[in-house]
Each structure stands twice: as structure tokens, then as C-alpha cells.
Design a protein around this nucleic acid. Structure first.
Lengths: 339, 339
DNA sequence: AGATAATTCGAAAACGTTTTCGATCAAAAG
DNA sequence: CTTTTGATCGAAAACGTTTTCGAATTATCT
């Protein structure tokens, strides 16, 4: 059973393809009578225009591509949810691809998306991405690009992020105000901007409250996993007994820390307080529940799509594109692990 | 900067579009010399065929649609990961949509996918889906459909599932072998097959081990959330003190139960053992860690795609499609909450 | 009535690829 | 030398839509 085409409607109603097409798209040069006739018939027969054929003329695929570092991380699936929801409003479809935190794969996925003629790309860069020529290439080809969460300062494009440094500052400040003086930091990988910023926020909080920064109290998580958090916490218990709080770059290492402390029957937060980052679902469910920073994932996705859409409209009207830098608010969530 | 077209290559190399196209696709009726010439030039210029134009001829969009009930559930993002990985091998792109467990939205999303000319649809049905005409319609239009995880027995299509009843049986059997006699069940919604099957597995285990089934020890989770698990556990503590184990339809309600028991300082598993289902990441991270059934999410997605691809190939060769019913193995994961 | 304007429609080209079929030419066979 | 075969290529149609431009018809204005 072949799909209904404009041709079929045209011959059925004794009209031309042209008129049928125009009727469906509300062109002014077709009478209301025939418009009604066409629309009713199309409706009745459940006509669906072939989007691929349409694309060939309009060069608009009504598809956007999304590249994220991980598919099965809660924060990212939350973002995806926001993107898809926003895209739906403009009847856009979303193709999601993963870079698995690999620079090479990120390049490949971006190219695959271009090849599939997406109208734009929303991307959160991989930890290992050191070069951004695959992204600059998008700008040159005038394909709208919006970066979210993890971005690179090297690319001139719109971004939707949170103020990582400020959020981290507030997190550490919270620990200090709870009387902690010897605060360890589980930091993220060295490259991505937001793990740098969170580290800087940590340092700034120490500075402003007159606490000494100790290099040996900073532990680098390469995978940002609970396992690393667990391991580093054991190291702390063994070699740095004076530490009374941990600020982790993300919830997962923080959860690993809690798991480790629970296993060794160390009271949280009495002996060591723990602070996470991202407010994943797990943080409110573990015992003790984890204090953390809430990042508005879904909203971030939504904003990213909206900016893309705006840029696309401007591009169509030949209005020069001015990039936007949006910073979303974060919330400090106080739970048992710091109270 | 317009994209390179076959026409451009043709005129550059003094060939026809036909020959260029054939050279790139390794047709036998073009000499090795020109093949090489064309391929090298295409490579050098980074030529990417316009997939939309290609579709118009071949009627193959190289895109599949996926409809899942929830976007930000770990199990589903794991499945998505498996689908995308398998799709990548056949250079397929994946469009993901969510039904939000709503029947109406599910219908709408399926229609959107058809309209976008996807080559096939992989779907896990919503809890509220009672009618499957939107799916039968796919079969009629010969659009390959594969259902995974949550399926309906009313549709004749390929499925990739686990043996829910058997897995549930083993879960409850595990509790019984640990000496539990008064086992409560947090069951899922009434409609979807797998929550029915898990309930049946629960009942069968009781029967086979000579335990009495008590209706009042079965609690129905409509949302399958940790909150429900928490609430029902409080109810158990208050009204059913004899209960010494809980088997939950999913990890989330089980985690809610653990949270509640922890809050009330009730020892797990000494006083009440808890068993989950799905093996989400969270289950190994909470304290005590949660015994559960491991469901191979990524593998499920991968298999679902492979079946789709097989059906598509058969369709192209006009081989009558025979549907496959694949059942994947599950593992019982013993952790602290039952030991 | 004649000229002009407004309304309504359709022919045809275009988007970039794939594929059928026939043309051309050189080599092999008779 | 003619015929057959095989190798290599290209013309052209097709996929289904959108859009430009001109044609035809009707309504409006001198």
C-alpha cells in the first residue's frame, strides 16, 4: 500500500498538483472553496506529505542532531527530554548520538549528522576534545550550533550552561558554614571547562574564608564514577584523617564516598560531610541523603533547542546571527550528608 | 557554501553523473581506473551524498524510530544505547520519542515517525495502551515493528523480552530460601504484560513452596516510583508487622522501601529483606545494597535493532516475514538487602 | 463596451540521487 | 572482413514536493 501523494489527490479532485500543494499550505492564490475541498479530502485520506521530497526543495530537514558524551547518564537523559519536548512544539525530530567522551567519535558523529542534513546541532563536548575544528567547520557552513553544559571557550557559538564556579563556591561555602575546615575535593578531568570551573570555585571559597589550599587534598576523577569516589575515600581515611568534608565534582563520586564511609561505619556528616553536584535522583534516595547542587537538566535542553530555532529563523531571514550565552540558575540542596 | 554534488564531481572529472554514482557504489560496469579516479576525488573533496535525495529513489531513509514510555529512566536509556550502537553498524540513525506512558501520545508519536518515513519502529508500549490498532496499522503497511521489554500479546510482531514470570519466580524463591515466609509484593500497573507476569511469578513461587497467597500483601504501584515504595513500606510497618520480605516490581519502589526502613532504623535484611527488579545502577550504591534481577538493557536494544534489520532485508527480497520472539536471560544478583 | 485589475489556477523546473536501458567501441571469434 | 561478445559509459526517467511565472477567468472601473 503506497502512500498517498499530491498527485493522487490532484487527480481525484480534478486539480493540479500545484493547487493541491498550495491549498494545503494556505497560499493566498487559491480560493477558499478549493482549499476546503482539498483539506477535507486530505484529512479524510490521512494524507502525509513526504518530508524527504519536501526537504529536497526547501533544504529544511526538520531534524536536529544532538551529541552528548554519555547516553545513559541521568543528567543527559534529562537534557534530552527537554530538547525533545521543545523540538516537538516546532515539529522537529531529534537524532541523538553519543561521543562516549571520545574526541574521535565526537568528530565522526558530527559528520554523520551533517551528512544526514540536520538543520542544526546541539552538543555537549567530550572530556577528551582538545581541538574544535570539527565545530568551527559547522559555523563556517552556517549550520546552527548550540553547546550546552560542557562547552569549549574556543568555539564562537551560543551556549547554555550553569555558572559552575559560582555553584561550586556556594557548595564549599555551605560546608565551611557547617564548621568544616579541612575540605577535600574530588575534581573532574583536566580538560572540560566545567570541571575546571568547579575546581576554581572550590579554591575561591577556601581563599575567601581564609582556609589553606592543599594540593594533596585534591583527587582527580578521570571517569567520574562512584568507584573512584570509593577508592579516594579509602585513601583519605588511611592517609588524611584530618579531612572532615568532601566536595565532589559530581554526584557519582560523592555516592561512592558515602558508600565507603557507610561500609567503614563512619558517621556522616558527624565525622565527614559529603557534598555532591548535579542532584541526580540517586542523591535523595541513598542513606544518608546527599546534599548537592541542582542543575536544571530539562530546562537546559529546552533552552538549547529554543536558541537553535531562533538562530535558524534568523538565518532564513538573512539576519546576521548573534550568539547568546545563557547561564541557568542552580540550587543548593541541603540534605542529610551535610547537616 | 553549498554541498558537493554528484554533478560537480562529474563535470570536474569529465564524466556523467551516472558513472560517478555507479563508481561510488561499485557497480561492475565501470572500469577500475575511473572507479579509482572518482573515489579518490570524492575522498579528497569529502563528498557526502545527500541522503534525502537518495531516499527519494530508494525509499530507504536509513532512519528508525524508537518509542519508549520514559526518556529519563536508566533502563530505557540503556536500551537506547544498545539500539544506537547496533544501528551505527548498519549506518542507521535513530530518532527517539517518548510516550510518557500515555496511549494517546504513543499513537501520535508512531504517526510522526511514519510521516518522517522511518524504515521501521522499535517500541515499548505505554502502561495505559489498551488498544493496538496504531500498531496493527504498521504491520499492514509492512513497516517493520519490533517490540521490546513491554509488549502486547495482541500485536503480531517480533519481540525481545525477558521471561518476567520466571525471573520473578526466582527472585521470590531466593527470598523463601533465605527463610522468609511472609512476603509482600509491590506490583506494577494492571495493564502491561510484564507487571502481570512478575505478579504471576510471585504467586507461582508462593504456590510451589506452599505459602499462602494474601491479597492484602500485594500493593499496586501506578507510577513505579520510590515514593510509592516508601509509602507502602510505612503502611506495612504500621498494619502488617508480620511481613518479613518485600519483592518489588522494580528497583525504584524497592529503593523507596529501603529508604523508609533506614529512616525507621529497621535492620535490613534481618527484620525485612528487600528484593528489586532491573539492576539499576542505584541498586549497588545504596546502603544496604539491593538484591535484584539483572536485565540486559543494552543487549535488548541491540537485539531489537538486529531483528528489525533482518525483517527489513527480507522485506526487500520479498521473503515472507516470520516474526521472532526472543527471550533474554536474566541474572539474580544477591546483595546485602537479602543476605 | 473596453480597459484594467484582481482572482484563481496550472505548466514546468528544480532539489540530488539511483537505475534502466541503450549506445559506443574495442577485442575476440567466425 | 564480418559478426559476436564484452567492457565501458551516458541519456533520461523517476522519486514527491515546492515555487516561480504566466495564463485564464472573473470582477471592477472608466
Amino acid at each position: 500500500m503506497k502512500n498517498l501523494r499530491l498527485t493522487d489527490i490532484a487527480s481525484e479532485l480534478n486539480l493540479s498538483v500545484t493547487t493541491v500543494s498550495k491549498a494545503l499550505k494556505n497560499y493566498p492564490d487559491v480560493s477558499n472553496k478549493t482549499k476546503k475541498r482539498v483539506k477535507e479530502y486530505a484529512q479524510k485520506m490521512n494524507f502525509k506529505p513526504n518530508s524527504f521530497a519536501a526537504y529536497l526543495r526547501t533544504q529544511e530537514s526538520k531534524i536536529i542532531g544532538v551529541v552528548i558524551p554519555r547516553l545513559n547518564h541521568f543528567f543527559f537523559s534529562d537534557i534530552i527530554k527537554g530538547i525533545i519536548k521543545a523540538a516537538e512544539k516546532e515539529s522537529y525530530m531529534v537524532i541523538v548520538l553519543s561521543s562516549e567522551e571520545s574526541y574521535e567519535l565526537e568528530c565522526k558523529q558530527v559528520n554523520r549528522l551533517i551528512q544526514h542534513n540536520v538543520d542544526g546541532i546541539l552538543l555537549s563536548i567530550a572530556d577528551s576534545t582538545h581541538d574544535v575544528s570539527h565545530l568551527s567547520q559547522l559555523i563556517e557552513q552556517k549550520i546552527p550550533l548550540v553547546m550546552f553544559d560542557k562547552y569549549s571557550k574556543l568555539t564562537t557559538c551560543s551556549t547554555v550552561v550553569i555558572n559552575d564556579q559560582d555553584a561550586a563556591f556556594r557548595a564549599v561555602e555551605h560546608l565551611i558554614k557547617k564548621g568544616r575546615r579541612n575540605i577535600a575535593h574530588f575534581r573532574g578531568p583536566l580538560l572540560p571547562q566545567n570541571s575546571i570551573d568547579r575546581f576554581l570555585g572550590f579554591r575561591r571559597a577556601l581563599d575567601e574564608y581564609g582556609l589553606k589550599y592543599r594540593k594533596e587534598w585534591v583527587f582527580t576523577c578521570d571517569e567520574i564514577s562512584s568507584e573512584e569516589g570509593y577508592r579516594y575515600t579509602e585513601e583519605i581515611l588511611k592517609s588524611h584523617p584530618e579531612i572532615d568534608a568532601i566536595f565532589a565534582v559530581a554526584d557519582m563520586p560523592a555516592v561512592g564516598a558515602i558508600k565507603c564511609l557507610n561500609t567503614h561505619n563512619i558517621p556522616i556528616p558527624e565525622r565527614i560531610a559529603v557534598m555532591g553536584f548535579s542532584n541526580w535522583k540517586i542523591s535523595e534516595l541513598i542513606t544518608p541523603s546527599l546534599s548537592t547542587i541542582d542543575q536544571p537538566g530539562s530546562l537546559m535542553g529546552q533552552k538549547a533547542f529554543e536558541i537553535f530555532y531562533e538562530e535558524l529563523q534568523n538565518k532564513k531571514k538573512n539576519i546576521p546571527i548573534k550568539h547568546q550565552q545563557i547561564t541557568l540558575n542552580t540550587d543548593l540542596i541541603e540534605r542529610e550528608s551535610t547537616n
